[in-house]
Amino acid sequence: SLEELLKLARHALRHGEEIHVLDRVITDEHEIKRLIEELERLI
């Protein structure tokens, strides 16, 4: 769900981890922040 993805993204950002989204691995902090902003808009 989007909520789950948002939780994962926030966790990854906090802990400096990578996040796997739709067969992509996002490691860049700015990309993760952008993902979080997009998800928050959708929810």
Rank of each mutant, 00 (worst) to 15 (best):
E38T: 13
V25R: 05
G16V: 03
H11W: 09
L42Q: 08
L13Y: 07
H20F: 10
L2I: 10
E37V: 11
V21L: 15
L35Y: 10
E3G: 07
V25M: 04
L13Q: 04
D23Q: 04
E3R: 11
D28Q: 10
L35P: 00
E3C: 05
V25D: 05
A12G: 04
I36T: 01
H11E: 11
I19P: 01
L8N: 08
I26D: 01
L6D: 00
T27R: 11
E3Y: 12
V21I: 14
V25H: 08
V25I: 12
K33I: 14
L13I: 06
I26L: 12
G16A: 06
K7D: 13
D28L: 11
K7A: 15
R34I: 11
V21P: 01
I43D: 02
K7H: 11
E29H: 13
V25A: 05
I26G: 02
R10H: 13
S1T: 12
L35A: 02
I36Q: 00
I26H: 04
V21F: 15
L13F: 06
I26N: 01
S1D: 14
K33L: 14
H15N: 12
E18M: 10
K7W: 11
L13C: 02
T27N: 10
D23T: 03
E17M: 14
R14T: 14
H20N: 09
E29Q: 14
E29V: 14
R14D: 14
K7R: 14
H11D: 11
S1Q: 13
K33R: 15
R41F: 09
V21Q: 04
D23W: 03
I36L: 03
R10W: 15
R10L: 15
K7T: 10
I43P: 01
R34H: 10
A12K: 02
I43S: 03
H20E: 08
A9H: 02
H15I: 06
S1I: 10
R34K: 14
E37C: 05
V21D: 03
L2Q: 03
E38K: 11
S1C: 09
L6R: 02
A12C: 03
I36K: 01
E40F: 05
L39N: 00
A9F: 10
I19Y: 05
H30P: 06
L39G: 00
H30G: 14
L35D: 00
L5W: 08
E18L: 07
I19H: 01
A9W: 14
L39K: 00
H11S: 06
D28T: 12
I43C: 05
E31A: 09
V21A: 07
V21H: 08
E3D: 08
I32Y: 02
E31T: 08
L2E: 03
H15G: 05
E17P: 02
R14Q: 15
K33D: 04
H30N: 14
H11V: 05
E38L: 13
S1N: 13
E40W: 06
E38S: 10
R24N: 06
G16I: 03
E40T: 08
R41T: 07
L42K: 08
E40S: 06
E3Q: 11
S1Y: 15
E40P: 00
E4I: 09
H11C: 05
G16E: 05
A12M: 02
L6N: 00
H15T: 13
D23A: 03
I32G: 01
H15F: 12
L39E: 00
E18A: 15
A12S: 04
T27D: 07
V25G: 03
R14C: 07
E17L: 15
L6E: 01
L35W: 10
R24M: 11
S1P: 11
E4H: 10
E31H: 06
V25E: 05
K33G: 07
E4D: 12
L39C: 02
S1G: 12
I19F: 13
D23P: 01
R34P: 01
L5Q: 04
I26S: 02
E31R: 04
H20Q: 12
E38Y: 15
E18Q: 13
L8C: 05
E37M: 12
H30R: 13
E18Y: 11
L39H: 00
R24D: 05
I32L: 13
D23H: 05
K7G: 07
L42E: 06
R24T: 08
I19W: 06
I19R: 01
I32E: 00
A12N: 02
H15E: 09
T27P: 02
R41Q: 09
H11G: 04
R41W: 10
R14W: 12
E3K: 11
G16Q: 08
R34L: 13
D28R: 07
I32H: 01
E40L: 10
I19M: 13
E29T: 13
R14A: 15
K33S: 09
R10D: 06
L35K: 01
L35E: 01
I32S: 00
H20M: 12
L22A: 14
D28A: 11
E4T: 09
K33T: 09
G16H: 11
E4F: 09
R10Q: 15
A9I: 13
A9R: 00
E17W: 12
K7S: 10
E18T: 14
H30S: 13
H30T: 13
H20V: 14
E17S: 13
S1A: 14
L6W: 03
I32N: 00
L2G: 01
E29M: 15
R14G: 07
L5D: 01
E29Y: 14
L35F: 13
T27H: 09
L22R: 08
L8D: 07
I19G: 01
R14E: 15
R41A: 10
L39S: 00
T27G: 09
E38I: 13
E3H: 12
A9Y: 13
E31W: 05
A12Y: 02
H11L: 07
L5V: 05
D23S: 03
E17Q: 14
R34S: 11
V21K: 02
R14I: 15
R34A: 14
A12F: 02
E17A: 12
R41I: 08
T27M: 07
V21Y: 15
R41S: 08
V25N: 05
L39W: 06
H20D: 05
E17F: 13
H30C: 06
